[in-house]
């Protein structure tokens, strides 16, 4: 910072352009494009509805949405706020539109700021991270598009044993891996969550939850998620767990 204030003229002009021209422009277009994306992301769902006449019962869609909201709703708010200092204003619009933030956008932005020799959190840093995230979006959209096309053909050409295997055994491994990733920081909470969920799943399968209205799967989800949250909170208050330094 001291180097920049030495070159007072240049840096003042710089932050004026940034604050008075760049950021208002980004806020206008960021809001427009992200809201447009909300509408257009309905594309496949609407095509299923109109072209293929598949109308899922609204009860199921609401049930699914409530379960997703219970699990991920807190991240809708916490993630943008936590990543914002690193991503900057333009980066926040771009990263939450394009996804894959922690594994792709953040590393790209950080590496670019390093190689262009600008500081994180300064206007210059924000310009460079905007450019880097833009470049990363071009790369991953193209790569995934080509890859998806090729992988679909490869998948359909596979023998049935492997098709079944891919459908059945990739997903559990992902669940196990992500559970382990979060459980690493909080093994006690992981144990609590696992016992709660296992107990509830067994109760459901034994039909012991049938006294509840509808298909009582939602109870399993609610008890697993909120039960774990409440117990974790209690453990934290008791000093049994604490957040790792770099979360």
């Amino acid at each position: 910072m001291s180097e920049q204030s030495a070159a007072a003229d240049g840096s003042d002009a710089g932050s004026d352009v940034y604050q008075d021209s760049f950021i208002p422009y980004i806020n206008t277009w960021g809001r427009r494009t992200n809201l447009l994306a909300v509408l257009l992301s309905l594309g496949p769902a609407v095509v299923l509805l109109t072209v293929f006449d598949i109308v899922p019962p609204s009860q199921a869609v609401i049930g699914a949405f409530v379960s997703v909201a219970a699990t991920f709703g807190i991240f809708w708010v916490v993630e943008p706020i936590s990543y914002y200092p690193v991503l900057g204003i333009p980066g926040t619009y771009m990263a939450f539109l394009s996804g894959n933030i922690s594994n792709l956008r953040l590393p790209c932005a950080a590496a670019a700021q390093e190689s262009a020799d600008v500081q994180t959190g300064t206007p210059q840093g924000s310009i460079i991270s905007t450019i880097a995230i833009g470049a990363s979006i071009v790369v991953n959209t193209t790569l995934l598009g080509v890859g998806a096309f090729a992988l679909v053909s490869a998948f359909q050409a596979m023998p049935e044993l492997w098709q079944n295997a891919l459908e059945s055994y990739l997903v559990p491994a992902v669940f196990g891996a992500i559970f382990a990733q979060f459980g690493r920081d909080y093994p006690k909470v992981a144990a609590v969550g696992f016992v709660l969920a296992l107990a509830m799943t067994l109760l459901l399968e034994q039909g012991l939850l049938n006294f509840l209205p509808g298909y009582p799967l939602y109870v399993v989800i609610i008890v697993s998620v909120f039960g774990t949250i409440l117990i974790a909170r209690w453990m934290w208050e008791q000093g049994m767990i604490e957040a790792p330094d770099d979360s």
Partner: peptide, 23 residues
């Protein structure tokens, strides 16, 4: 408390997903 609650929500949800697979 935020990282703890977020991680607990994640752990609870994924515990539910993986017990479904385990059984």
């Amino acid at each position: 408390l935020i990282p703890i609650i977020s991680s607990a929500a994640m752990l609870g949800a994924f515990a539910y997903f993986l017990t479904g697979e385990v059984t």
